[in-house]
Amino acid sequence: MEIIIGGILLGGTYALIAMGLQLQYGVARIMNLANGEILVAGSFAALWLFAGAQLSPVLSLIIVVPIAFVGNWLIYQYFLLPLVKRSKNQGQLEVDSILSTFGISFIFVGVMHAIFGGEYFNYEYLEIPFQVFEEPFALNRIVAFLGAAIAAACLYFWLNQTRSGLKLRAVSVNPDAANLVAINVNRASAMAFALGGAVTAGGGALISMFVTFDASIGVLFTMKALIIVILGGVKEIRGSIVAAFVLGLAETAVASLIDPGLTLASAFLLFILILLFRPQGLFGRQTS
């Protein structure tokens, strides 16, 4: 039972991490390898606001999310859009965007390292035990889980029920056709990229309440987010949420039953199995 609830809570965290990447890759077709660094930047921002202004990490979202939105929009406009325009095919764009976002991620790490140094950080907020099915869990994890649930619900509603959400989905399915029906593909992509970044940074702020982080830990988050997105099927936001729970449960189970040192190994095992047996993801449809 402890494993299941722990796994579900961890899954909620992972969903928060992966949703942003999903939006970016699904719509803007950019595999953003700086995703984890943006998350860690969100964590640092929350820490800084908490330590400096006694601002609750939950309230800090009001500041972190809009800044991340604008920041990611600028990254798209000035770093990625030129690559989109220059590339002659999807393969070229893929290579370029991998290299470029790696570069951006290194710069983030370097800057955060310069500001905060190389130490590990954590702080205490809402470390109150909370009973779930008679097992105690820290309240901050539950708050993060709720945050994930709210973000997922908002995104899902927005994508499926609104006009601007429909535009994004159209671009995600077929950018050329979307262009033909007068959708500004570059603007929709920038929007999705910025929104994805904002969700990611917000997630970072929330999980900073209970995760120990340092300037260079982002790449681990990137990797897990990617595994989740691939596991869930690249175009399916619901898929990646389920995949986040699968990964959360698998890691919690391995950590408590075998060895905590093997969590990454278990994530990788899942990844390999998916690549070998269902490369389109658990919920992705096979395309012709």
Partner: peptide
């Protein structure tokens, strides 16, 4: 302490200046 930063700048230089 700035090696990562330099590495990042190198990546960007390669992509944008000398592809």
């Amino acid at each position: 302490n700035q090696t990562t930063l330099v590495l990042g700048i190198c990546f960007l230089l390669i992509v944008y200046a000398i592809p």
